[in-house]
Design a protein around this nucleic acid. Structure first.
Lengths: 221, 221
DNA sequence: TCAATAGTGTCTGTTAGACATTATGGA
DNA sequence: TCCATAATGTCTAACAGACACTATTGA
């Protein structure tokens, strides 16, 4: 069927892209390279591992390694290109609230305040990365990795609300948290402005005996 | 840092691999190319889309398009290879129970009856593909795509049990199913051996108003 | 003192899981 | 008739969500 030389047709450039998320000014944000238009950090695959390349991109853009990272999706960059398509492996990463952006990088809020702040391809990558984080949120305690080692339960709940994109019920949230034995209180308290000071907690997961989740049929329309 | 010529180092072969699952003899099975050792169908990426290549592989191996397919993961094939690593994009596909294998292909049970039936890399790909299907099972009605258009509820439950790898409670399963309005009964009944005949159903999803799932903290040990 | 936030106790509706019962076929 | 399987009704324990209340700080 194909008349193009096979040896060229099987060649494909492979790019690693990372959507590194954090919380900036109380909003979810993603790291981009500065420019007229922000662009997600990316690099051609060298001879290392995929995740290693993504981690290096985060380190270059923030000065630190991600506290959590996962592969999100692989997107064909331009199918139909003569000589073979090109693909981008998108990683979703996370760094703690307050992590700065290195020279040549900046944080932009998610979702972007105005359309066009990112190229369509990058906007799609960010969307998928956030979806990846959200989907894993109840199996993998990603939210903790967006916080410093010590945090209040209200702060933790705010991170969950940012990632899920909806408000949560305070009492229910804390009950579920207590049942999962993921955090433990420490002796310190933090007072922020007016009200009662909040007790600080630290991430201290304990193994749980296998709690099987029920089967649910939730067809998303 | 690198002294290797950049233009070669950025080159990478990209391979599409598909783990096509079905139900064979009451067990979960995956399609492989025949040989001393089975190998997952794979192809270098041409100039088409990633999913298109995966669909073509299923069509070549079964004579039909998959009833469901999703991207599962991308695996670096051999990091450290001089001249750039190579990566494999793994797709998880599904065809209905009873779909045959084309010339040069066969079905092998999952998990494999004996270790070594698949190369380590392929075994890992199958594991991830099944995990992808399992993870989506409650958001996306994948199980129906492993069945013919008409099926009994017991058959449907058996598919769910195969995919989840555990037994389900019959009454609870049917209650959840009824609540989701995913199936509708048809006028036919099917008698299998002894007991009471089962009513046949057909996949007929109706949109549900947004039922938000609660936040759960399930740390897998 | 009031305002604001942290943290907790109680109630209620929902539902998963267990169990029992009825229904309907084949042997 | 007995047995096997389908299908459904009822009960209970667990729990999400709602609400109210107490606790503790700053203004």
């Amino acid at each position: 069927m194909r008349t193009r030389p096979a040896v060229r047709a099987t060649r494909a450039d492979l790019v690693i892209t990372v959507a590194c998320c954090s919380v900036v000014d109380g909003r979810l944000a993603v790291l981009v390279r500065s420019g007229a238009r922000g662009a997600l950090p990316n690099t051609p695959l060298g001879d290392g591992s995929l995740g290693g390349a993504a981690t290096a991109l985060v380190r270059a853009g923030t000065g630190r390694a991600p506290t959590w990272i996962a592969q999100s999706a692989t997107i064909a960059e331009n199918p139909g290109r003569p000589g073979g398509a090109m693909a981008s492996v998108v990683y979703a990463g996370v760094v703690p609230r307050g992590t700065g952006a290195s020279e040549g990088h900046r944080w932009i809020p998610v979702p972007a305040p105005l359309p066009g702040a990112l190229a369509a391809r990058d906007a799609q990558a960010v969307e998928r990365a956030v979806a990846t984080i959200r989907d894993r949120l109840d199996l993998d305690p990603v939210a903790f990795h967006l916080l410093p080692p010590e945090f209040t339960l209200t702060e933790l709940q705010e991170v969950y609300e940012l990632l899920l994109g909806r408000r949560l019920h305070k009492a229910s949230f804390r009950r579920a948290l207590a049942g999962a034995t993921l955090v433990e209180p420490i002796r310190d308290w933090r007072s922020e402005g007016r009200g009662r000071p909040a007790q600080l907690h630290r991430f201290a997961p304990r193994r749980r005996r296998g709690v099987r989740r029920p089967v649910r049929f939730e067809l998303i329309g």
